[in-house]
């Protein structure tokens, strides 16, 4: 076992080096200075308290999405529909805020209701994909993809239609909510909300504990690895699948709610910000391990935030961050394959 983990670490390191090498080649091909690029990404992510706070701001929804995805992955499901679930979370949150903002309900309560509404919205959308999967036999990847498109169209329609701002309906989104309905941030200028951070950490901790130490987590694992056997062993399988969808949806919806209440303070066209897809990558790179998810998500968030420096300082396109993330995950998958090939163990 020890030996195995050593060779695993060696291969992982090799994968990371190879990924960096490939990304470097890509940069050279684009006539970008690789060292300066890496340095700027690092500086852009940890160079000051402000940028570090920005990394944390990006970390929160990414971590929440990843936490949710770990649940569905455990149940053997590829919940690619998470983008739509984040969007619906944001839509429901906005809907609740719009409904209550003029009322006399205390702002804190409105905010709480809105966050809960977001969780419900995400869960409902996820359960739609779940119902299609469990009752209709529709593969969750394709059901989820379809629902993603529907969600983003719904979102656009709301922004440009029923919820358009009185002056100019715009890409800018709906009318911003009054500051009273913003999640309280560290300083008024900051976007970093301690409560959001706590929610995210609590979320991933919860998922970690649930998957590791509870009967529910174990049953979910059984369903994911062998649905038929799990059923024969007495696990109510479709209920568990639906439940895992719902839970993932809750996390996704929460991410959407935080996007609305603490980052953008309104509903915007691409409110999900690609966190769902990025979360899938994080989960893969973390090898579906909840304990690793937090640092990996932090790393990805840092890459995203750090890469902002590329166009500013080097006049390079910051999609380099995505290239880095992609090659990294790809090479880790390849390294895993090589290791399994060498040890003669099949893929699980």
């Amino acid at each position: 076992m020890r030996e195995g983990s050593l060779s695993r670490a060696a291969l992982r390191a090799a994968a990371i080096v190879l990924a960096l090498l490939l990304a470097t080649l890509v940069m050279l091909a684009a006539h970008a200075p690789p060292l300066a690029a890496y340095a700027n990404i690092v500086l852009g992510a940890v160079g000051s308290w402000d940028v570090a706070a920005n990394v944390l701001v990006a970390w929160v929804p990414l971590l929440l999405a990843t936490a949710g995805l770990l649940i569905t992955f455990t149940a053997g499901l590829w919940n690619i529909g998470i983008e739509g679930q984040i969007t619906l979370g944001a839509v429901f949150t906005t809907w609740m805020l719009r409904g209550l903002q003029a009322s006399s309900v205390p702002p804190a309560l409105i905010l709480a209701c809105a966050v809960v509404a977001g969780m419900v919205g995400g869960a409902l959308w996820a359960m739609l994909a779940g119902a299609l999967k469990t009752f209709g036999g529709v593969n969750e990847i394709f059901g989820g993809l379809g629902l993603n498109f529907v969600a983003s169209a719904l979102n656009l329609w709301l922004i440009f239609g029923p919820w358009k701002r009185p002056g100019v309906a715009s890409m800018s989104g709906t009318v911003p909510f009054p500051p009273a309905l913003w999640m309280v941030t560290v300083t008024p200028q900051s976007r970093l909300s301690i409560s959001a951070l706590v929610i995210a950490l609590l979320g991933i901790g919860l998922v970690y504990g649930m998957l590791r130490g509870t009967h529910f987590g174990l049953r979910l694992k059984a369903v994911g690895r062998n649905e038929k056997a799990a059923y024969l062993l007495g696990v109510p399988t479709w209920q568990h699948m639906m439940f895992s969808f719902a839970l993932c949806g809750i996390f996704a919806g929460l991410a959407g709610a935080i996007q609305v209440t603490s980052v953008y303070h309104r509903l915007i066209p691409s409110i999900s910000s690609g966190y769902g897809y990025l979360g899938l990558m994080v989960a893969m790179l973390a090898n579906f391990n909840a304990a690793l998810a937090a640092p990996v998500a932090l790393f990805f968030a840092a890459l995203n935030v750090g890469s902002i420096q590329l166009p500013i300082v080097l006049r390079q396109d910051s999609s380099l961050a995505g290239v880095l993330q992609g090659t990294l995950v790809l090479f880790v998958l390849l390294a895993q394959g090589v290791r399994q090939k060498l040890t003669g163990k099949g893929a699980t």
Binding site: T214, H215, F216, L218, K221, A222, R225, N226, A230, T348
Partner: peptide, 25 residues
């Protein structure tokens, strides 16, 4: 293929088929 869950340990199988007492294992 149908009776056991690859990847789970023997102990986990027993927990699966038996235990419900409380949420935690």
């Amino acid at each position: 293929e149908q009776g056991l869950v690859p990847g789970l340990s023997l102990a986990e199988h027993f927990v699966l088929s038996e235990g419900r007492g409380g949420p935690f294992i």
